[in-house]
């Protein structure tokens, strides 16, 4: 039996005190050990940002890549070895800004992996600029008259592109977030978990107490996550209440299921056979 301690490492955590990332890190370790995964069984892939540093703070396989590119790297890693359990740590800037095109196309492909988007509505690593999810009017040093574009709604976009697992968590609700991560990993297909979180340093609007007042269990009123229209309506909510839970889930073949070649086993496990080239290289 694997425990959360198996995923501990002694690497110094480089986040500000009070950062929502701590709750997500804790939820990840608990989810992995609950699923009885060993460090060798898990591959974490991340882009760039405060969220993308997360893999360094766990003991497991990891690839800390480039800004926005985590999902592209993860796609290649999964095609090469579809037996891997891949979890991507990304942020609102990384996944929805720099990596927006990769995000939309990863949803379309329905690759079997779990994406945790640490969504704090602001850029932390680059010191407090607006992010794609910042609300209209959000004032920063760079956006001194406030943001003048509509915010990116990752949930409605993922739902509209056919995502089979769309969820929202709140970093402070560690147990709930842990459960979402476990459900996401168990889901066969692309699992988006957008986790709202405070940034105590750069976001003075969407604070811990701001979220605490709004975060509400999606299932309080017998919600069933099998209706796309309901999910889309629920995904519009934000200002007064932020539902947390799985908005929508449906089963279906994943990207690697649809690649006929992989039915014989993962690409990494197949054998090299140069003799198959003979007919191509023969002149007659």
């Amino acid at each position: 039996m694997n425990t959360t301690q198996d995923f501990d490492n002694d690497f110094e955590i480089k986040w500000c005190p009070g950062c929502g990332n701590f709750g997500i890190l804790d939820a990840m370790k608990n989810a992995f050990s609950n699923l009885d995964l060993a460090p060798k069984d898990v591959l974490l892939i991340s882009g760039i940002g405060q969220a993308a540093k997360t893999p360094h703070f766990l003991n497991c396989n990891m690839f800390h890549t480039l800004h926005g590119r985590a999902l592209a790297v993860a796609t290649g890693a999964k095609i090469a070895n579809h037996d891997l359990t891949i979890v991507v740590n990304s942020g609102d800037g990384d996944c929805y800004g720099e990596g927006g095109n990769h995000f939309m196309n990863a949803v379309r492909r329905n690759l079997d992996l779990t994406v945790l988007v640490h969504n704090n509505l602001v850029y932390g690593l680059t010191q407090g600029q607006a992010s794609p999810t910042s609300k209209m009017g959000f004032v920063t040093k760079m956006q001194k008259h406030g943001v003048i574009a509509e915010p990116f709604n990752p949930l409605t976009i993922a739902l509209n592109l056919g995502a089979g697992f769309v969820a929202r968590g709140f970093s402070n609700n560690r147990e709930h977030t842990r459960q979402l991560i476990e459900d996401g990993i168990k889901h066969q297909g692309f699992a988006l978990i957008d986790i709202v979180q405070p940034c105590p340093t750069y976001n003075k609007v969407n604070t811990h107490s701001w979220y605490k007042k709004r975060a509400q269990d999606l299932y309080a009123d017998n919600y069933v996550p099998d209706d796309l229209e309901n999910a889309l309506a629920m995904a519009q909510q934000w200002d007064d209440s932020i539902p947390i839970g799985i908005y929508y889930q449906k089963a279906g073949p994943t990207f690697t299921d649809r690649i006929g070649k992989l039915a014989d086993g993962s690409l990494i496990s197949q054998k090299y056979d140069a003799s198959k080239l003979d007919s191509y290289l023969s002149v007659s």
């Binding site: 892939i45 690839f63 790297v73 290649g76 999964k78 090469a80 690409l267 990494i268």
Partner: peptide
């Protein structure tokens, strides 16, 4: 890059 990291 991801596929190569994975081993092919």
């Amino acid at each position: 890059l991801g596929a190569s990291y994975s081993g092919i």
